[in-house]
Amino acid sequence: MYNLLAIVTENRIQVFSIIGSISLILIILGLIKRKKLKEEYSLLWLACGCFFVLISVFKPLLQIFASTLGIIYAPSALLLMLIVSAFFILIQFSVVISKLSESNKNLIQEVGILKVELKKLHSHVQDIK
């Protein structure tokens, strides 16, 4: 019992990071369940979450990754990964916004045209009356 506690204490950061990344996944899944987040926009977040669980559980993975890239201080590799994943998600946002503004533009144009057609129709009806 004492031994287990000692192991946990020694590896506090690992415990915290596992808890943290699992919570991220749970939060995302919860949002999808409550329809606050669409499945198609959640995939990148879930991928990030799974990735962080993976490197939290298998500690040497980060070490290997860092040395492959030539990073001496392993935790900075972690930061790098964080930044890269945040970047991907932000790029996805820009893409989604562009798509939204395109459909928004089309809507504004069609509403304008419909309004004028409706007005014309209305005055026709008045004339007939």
Binding site: K105, I108, Q109, E110, V111, G112, I113, V116, K120
Partner: peptide
């Protein structure tokens, strides 16, 4: 003139394109 009132500001391109759509219809 026929006057189309756009419910929001689109910029010149969006406005002119509205005209093309109207002309096309």
């Amino acid at each position: 003139a026929t006057v189309i009132q756009l419910p929001a500001n689109l910029g010149i391109g969006g406005a002119v394109q509205t005209g093309f759509k109207y002309a096309f219809y």
